[in-house]
Design a protein around this nucleic acid. Structure first.
Length: 940
DNA sequence: CTTCTCACG
DNA sequence: GACGTACGTGAGAAGT
């Protein structure tokens, strides 16, 4: 890589995947300060430290399996088919181990479609051919075939070197005959068939006698033992397939050469910080002795400034306009194993934006911008229809255009070159709101992975105590004022799209974005473990990013004709109502203006009960109008009807039609992952989480959400998830039992609170209990409940008292939640998500009560959000494993909507419900109900 | 750019 | 005794 690099003499290749499993089982359980299991990570770190000492390599790399299928499955689908899933405590450690490799400044290598063993085989061959000695750190017998006089293995757990002698001991043959023995003996763990009845002993004997597998199979007829002869003749093909399975591939198309494994010192403070955040205190002094550094075991620098001091110095950024230069940047990123990436486009809407350029940062201050379509209008990609009459001079149009278009690498070629890097499982891609960039890249055929997202990191750490936009984060954490988009593109009507921004300005802006993202990552990522958020980030919010990106890209089919019909129906009825209302009022006015309406109702008509808002305007909300209507006033009644139709038309039928993407014919929402204080998602552009359902008229909108041809929609929703969660976290036995017995929870509550039998219950009684149940979740007050039910406050207060009587423990839970919030300024969900509570210690009583109610509600709402996130992360894989094509489209807090080929709907429902109901294990059952239909209205 | 109203869980 | 509240969102229209 660098000019000073020496050719490799001593190369250490660590089998990272093999080590994780062995360390996990060999070491006692350990947890980081936030409770994430880390025993395998700890074992790995101590092993790496020791390895550098003991083996003194000049080149070193850690190699991992990827989780998907390998090329072996192409010719033998059952290969490794019976592997049980890894233990729950190991799962979060896979990601952390890769982080550890980076902290040690070692290359982390993996490649989709290949196992770690194949990569090791390939690199071992390459290194040996260059004359280097190779040490493979592994005890996996499958790697023993690689042993030569240049290549040895080292079992780091047992401190044992494995050479030809040890291989002979294990397999009874020399290393070059190991695959022949394995082919005969098979391997039940990896599901390699072999020849039945032949084990390692017999296999070694046979191979020794006949020389090799092919000769043996050719001459199998000569074998004296009849059983053995028969089996060999019968299973000759199986033996050959088995040999193909166990033979490691030594020509994997690896992207990084062995030369790039040259051993570099880690950044001592980065490493110390990693160690401190995971609680590996015993390693601190060893690391300091070896590498220096100034961070203590608590992650604090001795100078007291913290490792997170990242000063931003004005950097030189590079404009990339040719392939040579681009390849250089790709190599740099590959070498670092981590990069920040950002796309520049023509629109904030990822589904219709056109790619304009890409920026990449590989180190703080080291970033580039690759312009792609600057100076090119849409006509460059989508040729306009020919039109006459506008050809003014005799200037050849082509010359004019090329004069304006700067030199740029073709989009297609750039994508081709970047794809291996952006899809390399061993290279971390960091983005600020990388979901957006993932969608853009997906439209160009690139599946960006693995990822980290500074916006999501910031959200997991700080909740919504501040925004998570890059400009704000840069100012907050780096004290740096970024170049604003409006600085380069202008504002208002004359705002340029990014493809119109001159290259010099584009370079400064775009490269800075990637640079700042990388710097923010260095600062925020260590805090995740320090502040005990590893589990939330690693198992919930990070894995959710690609899931949401897919859902958004898929979109949902919407019937434009249906919307148009509804819209015109609403318009007709609104016009009629408008005439009637104007007649009643005796004058025309804007029905949509609360101000004008208030004046008509309370001044002109002098209706009673007028109240003003804090700004002095008349209140004309639905509750006020309903009260007036109940007194027999017609105008408010009609106006309510008009308002409903107006809302449905403007917000739904009309607006939704404008959101249908012309290319896909579908509506693509965008999910906000960092907007909601409690951990819920939000949906915008358009908001598909508030499509009407409660009113008959409104529900019609849902008939316009339909399945694609040959498909059905499936809607699966959690039943009473928040009440169940309340029963669980507050440990309310009576409530838990009601759920365990599958009772109607509102009727059950009503029966207990009001002392009436469930059989033949007055629906009004049940309704009251339902309101109390909901009220409890919201941090009940007598005022609120009275308002909700339209009963005197005194009566509401009695209900609440009765409720606390029958469910003792509720009050305790509420007090605990409030107390915790007062002390810590936040509450936590079951899964460890922090929810910051504003105003909990405010002097103002009203703001304080507000905070107290939020503190009661947040663990419930947030816990439910965590659970459905877990389900969303698991469902796509479960559907795929079941061989189904069903795809998840939408999430509405406790409901998931899928599109399923008709033939597989029943099977899909089973898989979906199973995943949802097992997304968390609580002391109450989780129940998901599902419906199937042609439209969302039918499926619900 | 803020306020009001109303759609959802 | 009065305050003015149910928890969490996003969007359209009016009125500054």
């Amino acid at each position: 890589m660098t000019d000073t690099a020496q050719p490799p003499r001593r190369v250490v290749l660590v089998d990272g995947s093999g080590f994780i499993f062995r360390a996990f089982h060999a070491l006692p359980p350990m947890n980081s300060p936030d409770g994430t299991p880390v025993n395998a990570v700890y074992g790995f770190c101590t092993m790496l430290m020791k390895l550098r000492e003991d083996t003194r390599p000049d080149h070193m790399a850690v190699i991992f399996d990827t989780k998907g299928k390998s090329f072996r499955n192409d010719f033998y689908p059952d290969y490794k088919a019976h592997r049980p899933p890894p233990p729950e405590e190991l799962i979060p450690q896979f990601g952390l181990i890769r982080d550890a490799v980076r902290a040690f400044n070692l290359p982390s290598i993996e490649l989709e479609g290949y196992e770690a063993d194949d990569l090791i085989a390939t690199y071992a061959r390459q290194a040996a051919e260059q004359g280097a000695d190779v040490i493979i750190v592994s005890s996996d017998k499958d790697l023993m075939q690689l042993v030569t006089d240049r290549v040895e293995m080292f079992d780091a757990m047992k401190n044992r070197t494995i050479r030809a002698d040890e291989v002979m001991e294990k397999f009874g043959v020399a290393p070059d005959k190991v695959i022949d023995v394995q082919a005969l003996a098979g391997d039940p763990v990896d599901n390699v068939p072999g020849v039945p009845g032949i084990g390692v002993k017999t296999a070694a004997q046979l191979i020794t006698e006949y020389g090799d597998l092919d000769t043996l199979l050719e001459r199998a007829g000569e074998i004296k033992q009849p059983k053995r002869r028969e089996k060999l003749l019968e299973n000759a093909d199986m033996a050959r397939v088995s040999r193909d399975l166990v033979r490691l591939k030594t020509d994997v198309p690896v992207t990084l050469p062995v030369d790039d494994f040259d051993l570099r010192e880690p950044d001592a403070d980065v490493l110390l910080s990693f160690i401190a955040t995971h609680g590996f205190k015993s390693l601190t002094s060893k690391v300091k002795a070896k590498f220096g550094g100034t961070v203590d075991e608590n992650g604090i620098t001795e100078a007291g400034t913290g490792v997170n001091d990242v000063s931003v110095t004005k950097a030189e950024y590079e404009l990339v306009q040719d392939e040579e230069s681009l390849k250089k940047w790709i190599a740099k990123a590959d070498y670092e194993g981590v990069l920040a990436v950002d796309t520049e486009t023509t629109s904030l809407n990822a589904h219709q934006a056109r790619l304009v350029g890409i920026s990449i940062a590989v180190k703080p201050g080291e970033a580039c911008y690759i312009p792609l379509t600057h100076g090119m209008g849409d006509e460059e990609t989508e040729p306009k229809a020919a039109q006459g009459g506008f050809d003014f001079g005799s200037d050849p149009a082509g010359d004019k255009e090329t004069a304006d278009i700067p030199k740029q690498i073709p989009v297609k070629r750039t994508i081709e070159l970047l794809k291996p890097l952006l899809e390399d499982r061993g290279v971390l891609k960091i983005g600020q709101n990388i979901k957006y960039d993932k969608i853009i890249f997906a439209r160009h055929g690139i599946d960006v992975a693995p990822i980290d997202d500074t916006m999501v990191l910031s959200y997991v750490l700080d909740g919504t105590s501040h925004g998570h936009g890059m400009d704000e984060l840069a100012d907050l954490h780096l004290g740096y004022k970024t170049i604003k988009f409006t600085d380069v593109a202008g504002t208002g009507k004359n705002q340029l799209t990014f493809d119109q921004v001159p290259l010099d300005k584009a370079l400064d802006y775009a490269a800075e974005d990637a640079d700042i993202t990388l710097r923010l990552h260095r600062l925020l990522k260590p805090r995740i473990a320090q502040e005990h958020m590893a589990s939330v980030y690693e198992t919930l919010d990070r894995p959710l990013v690609p899931v949401l990106a897919k859902m958004e890209a898929l979109g949902v089919k919407v019937d434009a004709d249906k919307l148009r019909d509804l819209s015109s129906d609403f318009a007709t009825r609104m016009a009629a109502l408008e005439t009637t209302i104007h007649e009643m009022a005796g004058e025309t006015f804007n029905l949509g203006s609360p101000k004008q309406l208030g004046e008509i109702l309370f001044e002109k008509m002098s209706l009673p009960g007028g109240k003003k808002t804090k700004t002095g305007a008349w209140q004309t909300g639905a509750d006020v109008l309903e009260a007036l209507a109940a007194q027999g006033h017609d105008l408010p009644e009609r106006l309510l009807e008009w308002r409903q139709l107006s809302k449905l038309k403007s917000t739904y039928t009309d607006a939704l039609a404008n959101h249908i993407n012309p290319q896909t014919g579908r509506v693509h929402t965008s999910y906000g992952q960092t907007n909601v204080n409690t951990g819920r998602l939000s949906s915008n552009d358009p908001n598909l989480q508030n499509i009407p359902i409660r009113s008959e008229e409104g529900r019609k909108i849902r008939t316009a959400f339909i399945a694609d041809k040959g498909c059905k929609l499936i809607s699966a929703d959690y039943s009473q998830i928040e009440l169940r969660l309340l029963a669980h976290v507050a440990e309310i036995d009576a409530l838990r039992n009601a759920f365990k017995n599958g009772e109607d929870i509102h009727a059950s509550t009503a029966s207990k609170v009001f002392g009436v039998p469930i059989e033949g219950m007055d629906p009004m009684v049940r309704r009251k209990a339902k309101a109390i149940n909901f009220g409890i979740i919201y941090g009940i007050s007598a005022f609120g409940l009275a308002n909700q039910l339209g009963i005197p406050q005194k009566e509401a207060k009695e209900f609440i008292e009765a409720y606390f009587e029958i469910y003792p423990g509720i009050r305790d839970y509420m007090d605990r939640a409030k107390e915790f919030a007062k002390t810590h300024g936040m509450v936590r969900t079951l899964f460890g998500r922090k929810i910051f509570i504003n105003g909990i210690n405010d002097k103002n009583g009203m703001r304080r009560s507000f905070g107290e109610r939020a503190a009661i509600n947040a663990p419930i709402q947030g816990g439910a959000a965590d659970i459905i996130k877990r389900a969303m992360i698991a469902v796509p894989g479960a559907l795929q494993d079941a061989g189904l094509k069903t795809r998840m489209l939408l999430q509405v807090h406790d409901e998931l909507i899928f599109e399923a080929p008709e033939a597989e709907t029943e099977q899909a429902v089973k898989v979906i419900r199973d995943v949802m109901e097992n997304a968390a294990s609580l002391s109450v059952p989780l129940i998901a109900d599902a419906g199937i239909g042609d439209s969302w209205a039918d499926a619900h």
